[in-house]
Simulated scan of single mutants.
Amino acid sequence: MPHRTRLPELPEPETFKRIKEQELFCVFKSSVFHQHKVTVGDIVQAEKLHRRDAGEKVVFGTVLLVGSKDFTILGKPTVPYAKVKATIEQQTLSQEMHVFWYKPRRRQQGFYRRRQHVTMLRIDEIVLTPEEDSTDPPPPKPVRLLDLWANRWLDPAEKEGIEMVQGEKEGELIPKTALIYDGSEHQPGSYHRRGLTSCYRYWPDPAASHWRL
């Protein structure tokens, strides 16, 4: 049905700069199936983020709604210029759940206890920048061929032993593996799962790499 009343106009970019981040709230996705309504300072229990440790900074790019007491922005399906920055507080297990299992043909049944791996997140900032480009930069090139994602976990002493060669630009040094392997994903969404991309994005975000992750 068409709107019978006039829709409110989107505030000017200068209006967003005057808004305090503590006054914003948003709905973002931390996995394919889970959504969270948060404000700055909230602690969220999300699905486990692989290869992440406590204290690391993460960014979520699939924001479905952003609002304050003055305005509300609805995504179609997402808000491309909005992001949520968070800090990983803990990688832990959820409380115990009793799961019932039953096999009708064998007439067997029972219970078992199960604990789910979860990640505790603290929301640091809700970024709203409509004047900036919303496209994500490409994932970094691999430093070692055997560990395509290990450049984020290498110690400085290990990075010193990596052989670097001259790149195409003058004065640019690139790892020798870049001459053999261009750094493309061998499977869609593998860099996203390992946390190599600039932010986590999930379906229905048009920029999501794979809907299963």
Results as ranks from 00 to 15, higher is better:
38 V>W: 06
24 L>P: 08
40 V>A: 14
197 T>A: 00
166 Q>A: 04
124 D>V: 03
178 A>Y: 15
171 G>N: 05
41 G>Q: 01
128 L>T: 03
90 Q>D: 14
94 S>D: 15
145 L>H: 05
139 P>F: 09
16 F>W: 13
9 E>N: 00
200 Y>S: 02
165 V>C: 07
109 Q>I: 06
4 R>I: 13
153 W>S: 08
79 V>T: 07
199 C>L: 01
209 S>T: 03
5 T>R: 02
162 I>M: 01
185 E>T: 12
88 I>W: 10
40 V>T: 01
92 T>K: 06
199 C>T: 13
106 R>D: 02
84 V>L: 08
179 L>I: 13
109 Q>Y: 13
188 P>W: 00
112 Y>G: 13
86 A>K: 03
77 P>V: 13
16 F>M: 04
97 M>F: 07
50 H>N: 00
94 S>H: 15
3 H>W: 13
207 A>K: 09
133 D>Q: 11
135 T>W: 14
83 K>M: 09
151 N>E: 00
43 I>K: 14
65 L>F: 11
30 S>A: 13
185 E>W: 03
145 L>R: 09
58 V>E: 13
170 E>R: 14
23 E>G: 05
204 P>L: 03
55 G>S: 09
73 I>Q: 10
39 T>M: 10
47 E>K: 08
73 I>N: 09
183 G>D: 03
161 G>A: 15
48 K>G: 06
66 V>M: 03
52 R>G: 04
35 Q>A: 12
11 P>I: 04
113 R>A: 15
52 R>P: 06
19 I>N: 03
213 L>N: 03
149 W>V: 04
195 G>V: 05
61 G>N: 09
